[in-house]
Computed example of a mutant assay.
Amino acid sequence: MSDRQGSGSADGTHVPRSRVWVGDRVVAEDVAGPETADLLHHEADACAWAVVDPSDHERIGGVIDKFGLDEWVRRDLLGHDHHPEPDRLAALGPERAAGRPQVKYEEFGDVRLVITAATELPEQPRGRDALDVRRVAMVITPRLLLVVAGPEDADELGRHLVAAQSRLGPGGTERAAQAVLHGLSSGYFTVVQAIEDAGDELADALFDLQPLSREEKGTAFRLRRTVTELRRVTVPMREVVEGLGQSSAEEPGSISRSWNLLIEHQTSVSAAADDLRDSLGALFDTSLAFDDSRMNEVMKKLTGWAAIVAVPTLVSGFAGMNVPFWGNGHATGFYVYLAIMAVACVSLYVVFKRLEWI
């Protein structure tokens, strides 16, 4: 992507990748990093945001160098795919070394670093990954918001920033950061809603008082795994938003209220994810209860028929002993024992049928 190139959405609408503004006036769009710095230098009241690809090392490095951030910040911004040496990965810990975005928030003076993630349900699950989780990083300074996101999320985040332009004037980069976080949080809600809809379909299947099929159990397991992966983002993200809100406590009242709304929004997402985990667990438990009930019914039928079959086996075994007794070797004895077996089997059948064992 060229520094001067924005992007186009699916409907052909131009989506800028950077913007410089003063109050309600947009000064420039899709400008290169050095030009952005020049505009901020010449316009004392100007602010800017930029959405850059993780591969844009020059622009990211320029921001890091300008604000005196360390190498670890560079690594967080670029993601671990850019430094896969085993010894360095070992120092990052197993979760970060595995490539999962580590959601976190740090402050370096008046510069704030946010590492979070965008989430999306894939149309077709790939391997063990039930949820697409993509790194999104932000560097928030008093006059510049730098968002590092891959091409899958850059356009969507750009649209959120453009849509929030009317609120950016009085709020500056604080409002811009809120717009990005609101867009990410909306993505979490979209995932939650999709999981809820899928869970409702599984619940409807249980209303027939039948356990889930093998395919439905596989779907329920994938949904539960998806919720687990979603919670790895939403739970720490709530703490990140709270940290941002606390760091902005001295900002104008409207900005503080916006952070509080974002905290409430993120708390709702986390609570919804927890509720989904519980409801999917209840689906599993209910299905297992139906499985147990059906197994009990099968065992009762097998027990009833085994008892019925045991009667002729018992009578014929008794009559077949090599001991002289009444009816032995005569047709009369055969018919008598045959009648005994028939009466006993029919009686047991009637009793078990009334008890609903067969």
Score class of each variant (00 low, 15 high):
1 M>I: 10
1 M>T: 12
1 M>P: 09
2 S>M: 12
5 Q>L: 13
12 G>I: 01
14 H>K: 05
14 H>L: 10
17 R>P: 01
20 V>P: 09
23 G>K: 06
25 R>F: 13
33 G>R: 06
34 P>H: 05
34 P>A: 07
38 D>K: 09
41 H>R: 15
43 E>D: 14
43 E>N: 14
49 W>Q: 10
52 V>K: 05
56 D>P: 09
56 D>C: 04
59 R>N: 04
60 I>E: 02
62 G>N: 13
63 V>A: 10
65 D>E: 15
70 D>S: 08
71 E>A: 15
71 E>K: 12
72 W>F: 15
72 W>V: 12
76 D>P: 05
76 D>K: 02
79 G>Q: 01
81 D>F: 03
83 H>S: 14
84 P>G: 09
85 E>L: 13
93 G>H: 03
102 Q>E: 14
104 K>R: 15
106 E>Q: 10
107 E>F: 00
113 L>A: 07
113 L>R: 04
119 T>R: 00
122 P>D: 00
127 G>H: 06
127 G>Y: 03
127 G>T: 07
129 D>C: 01
129 D>A: 13
134 R>L: 07
138 M>Q: 08
144 L>W: 12
148 V>W: 00
149 A>E: 05
153 D>G: 03
156 E>P: 00
159 R>T: 14
162 V>S: 07
164 A>S: 11
169 G>W: 03
169 G>V: 06
177 A>C: 13
181 L>S: 02
182 H>D: 14
188 Y>I: 08
192 V>M: 11
196 E>T: 14
198 A>M: 01
199 G>E: 11
205 A>V: 11
205 A>R: 15
211 P>D: 02
216 E>L: 04
216 E>W: 02
221 F>E: 05
223 L>Q: 11
227 V>E: 01
230 L>G: 01
236 P>Y: 01
237 M>G: 05
238 R>D: 04
238 R>Q: 11
239 E>N: 05
244 L>R: 02
245 G>I: 10
254 S>H: 13
256 S>R: 15
258 S>I: 00
263 I>E: 02
263 I>H: 02
268 S>P: 00
269 V>Q: 01
271 A>M: 03
273 A>F: 00
283 L>P: 02
285 D>L: 03
286 T>R: 08
288 L>R: 06
291 D>V: 15
298 V>F: 07
298 V>S: 03
300 K>Y: 04
300 K>I: 07
301 K>H: 04
301 K>N: 07
303 T>Q: 07
304 G>D: 05
309 V>D: 06
310 A>I: 10
310 A>T: 10
312 P>E: 15
314 L>E: 09
325 F>A: 14
325 F>P: 08
334 F>T: 13
334 F>G: 11
335 Y>R: 06
338 L>N: 08
343 V>K: 09
345 C>R: 06
348 L>G: 09
348 L>D: 11
354 R>D: 03
